[in-house]
Design a protein around this nucleic acid. Sequence first.
DNA 1: TAGTGGTCTAGACCACTTC
DNA 2: AAGTGGTCTAGACCACTAC
Lengths: 264, 264
Amino acid sequence: MSTRAKRGATAAPSRPGRATGAPRYARVADALLADIERGKYAVGDLLPPELDIAEQYGISRYTAREAIRRLHDMGLITRRAGIGTTVKATHTQVRYTASISDITDLLHYSKKTQLKILSEDWVRIEGPLEPLLKDAAGQRWLKFSTLRYPAGGEVPISFTEILVHPTYERIRERMHEPNATVYRLLEDMHGETIHEVRQEIGCTALTRKTAALLGARAGGPALYVLRYYIGKGDSLMSLSINTYPQDRFKLSTSWRLDRRGDDR
Amino acid sequence: MSTRAKRGATAAPSRPGRATGAPRYARVADALLADIERGKYAVGDLLPPELDIAEQYGISRYTAREAIRRLHDMGLITRRAGIGTTVKATHTQVRYTASISDITDLLHYSKKTQLKILSEDWVRIEGPLEPLLKDAAGQRWLKFSTLRYPAGGEVPISFTEILVHPTYERIRERMHEPNATVYRLLEDMHGETIHEVRQEIGCTALTRKTAALLGARAGGPALYVLRYYIGKGDSLMSLSINTYPQDRFKLSTSWRLDRRGDDR
DNA sequence: TAGTGGTCTAGACCACTTC
DNA sequence: AAGTGGTCTAGACCACTAC
């Protein structure tokens, strides 16, 4: 009980389980983590209160909190004042993540593309659209038919149909501006943020009509990408239906291993 | 001063008292964030030392640290003892992330699939393989040709060629086990972890040979997915080349907005 | 040697939840 | 009223980096 502070940030490269020269909070965090993995605290259980943990390990409340914070950063627990600390998972659920800085990153490598609007009209959600927009069946949505070109290029990358919830019809006013994108207009004009994008990728054969628009061979293979743009509270704001003919576009994603609980 | 602690985490709408109602560290973090965005501290600059910030805002070092921690959690700064706090970015670089708990999640919705190995041999990286594995040109890699079936199904989902770096040839021993996956065997048998997966998605037309294996129409559209499995230090460990005929498989990804600096 | 961030203590008041 | 996590203070020693 005499040894005071141990040391600052030493090498101590996140040896899982080991705990020789690591800070106290890290050792306590490892101990708690081991308890959770061993099942001493099951999912749904409460961890002991901070003061109990502090007493149990002979540390101050600050250090106990710092240990618990690690578990929180790993996403293993939730905390609520008045309730306590609840175990939510025994292992870090997410191991790999992919990141983008901007939704545009989903669309094309090069952000330097241009959208050409072929037509703009109101459509009723029925027929082939209905399975894509079940919850909006019968509603009238704004629809843009577009081609996307590389900067200065003559050959389109994709044929894209964009459906927009009627609430946001004002974006029509500025949709023809160069470099306009639906989601940016939604943010600018309606103050709405895209909270989530759900993307579904498949393949298809080009119809005669689409092939003609894209200058590709009818029946040829094409990437078919649906993107649902979802706002606050799971509200669907927009849907885009993209068709990319073979070899004009490649979708790349990089998934990286998370090391959240280790260093920081 | 006399005023001690302010308050806990409250909503506190428009109490005309002092500041907004947010904790002090949050207000200070916002102020620092504003300074960074305004350019008062440019990228590469050092933020003032903790004690200066504490003095400047009339708070304790703990509270100043807590404020700075938020900026760190947002990825805007790096900190080093003896040096100081360096501004690394003015805005959170990553806004949207997608997560998976397991690499298997990349492959198919249902994890209940079975791999059938058609053949296994050593191939030299040349010819059509060379552009995919430039750095390994001329090397001999282990290659598996496989079909993946849904649990109990008769119709394959995909034709997959798997290339494995010669270092890891031992996985051959257990590759035929049910539910074997390359990356899990790499972890089990060689103690190597996949640090990153790079995925490239395109489309193609089925060759006669592949179509025959898959029981699909030659020339029909197919998803073409390359996955590079990368270990520590950017070392390429394995590559898989997947061909999914139309309608047998859909790739889904969900990108969520990060809200790291806001609540927690 | 001086100054930085990293760790730690011992206390305190607060808001929230449960009894 | 009691107990929880959330916030905050005023101090301290440490390891690291620069001078």
